[in-house]
């Protein structure tokens, strides 16, 4: 016999789902609206952790959770904090000026139009596309990771190679961008 009745368990799951979604979307909203850029990076970390929880609970992939936490929440955000620290005191707070062309009304109007277009496109998609399939034959997590490793070196081998060159170019480019200015000083 289960410790918690099934109906209560499903209600609790749904309750937790709404808390998770509210946490993720609320953090994203605060990341783009809060005044201090330092605090925006902190809210970005919370958003990334919320997305990592969605990967674990609803996409059923613990590998993506780990990658998201290590690379995004751990690595990129530290890069952001260093960039803000090196950019002086003025960079920490965003000054609100009167812009001639782009202001918040235009941004929200553009978002709303995008939302309408997306809702129209999504409403044309067949309902079979959305339903959760029968996952009884789903391979175990370790088999999935093995399959993924095989695909990364066979089917997607060219993409990984291009990605390696891109990362090399990004590393050399950022070193060049910063180094040249140091020599000028």
């Amino acid at each position: 016999m289960a410790l918690i009745p099934t109906e209560l368990f499903q209600t609790l799951e749904l309750f937790f789902f709404f808390i998770l979604i509210g946490y993720t979307i609320g953090s994203a909203f605060l990341a783009v609206t809060v005044k201090s850029v330092y605090h925006a990076v902190l809210w970005l970390v919370f958003t990334l952790l919320g997305v990592a929880m969605i990967f674990l609970l609803y996409a059923e992939s613990s590998l993506l959770l780990v990658i998201q936490m290590i690379v995004y929440a751990g690595g990129i955000t530290v890069l952001f904090v260093f960039a803000i620290s090196l950019s002086g005191k003025e960079a920490m707070f965003e000054e609100q000026k009167d812009l001639k062309l782009l202001d918040w009304r235009l941004s929200f109007a553009g978002s709303f139009i995008l939302l309408l277009i997306a809702l129209y496109v999504l409403s044309r998609v067949s309902s079979i596309f959305w339903q959760k399939p029968d996952l009884t034959n789903k391979p175990s997590e370790i088999d999935l990771i093995r399959d993924m490793a095989k695909m990364l070196f066979t089917v997607h081998g060219g993409t990984i190679l291009v990605l390696g060159f891109l990362l090399l170019a990004a590393m050399l480019g950022s070193v060049y961008l910063v180094k040249k200015e140091v020599e000028d000083i």
Partner: peptide
């Protein structure tokens, strides 16, 4: 979709270049 629209609105609204990158990450 909601996360994308928040990021899009933030990208247009923000003036700090760092916050633009934050919006792109979202």
């Amino acid at each position: 979709l909601i996360l994308f629209l928040i990021g899009f609105a933030g990208f247009i609204k923000s003036q700090s270049a760092v916050r633009m990158l934050i919006s792109i990450e979202i």
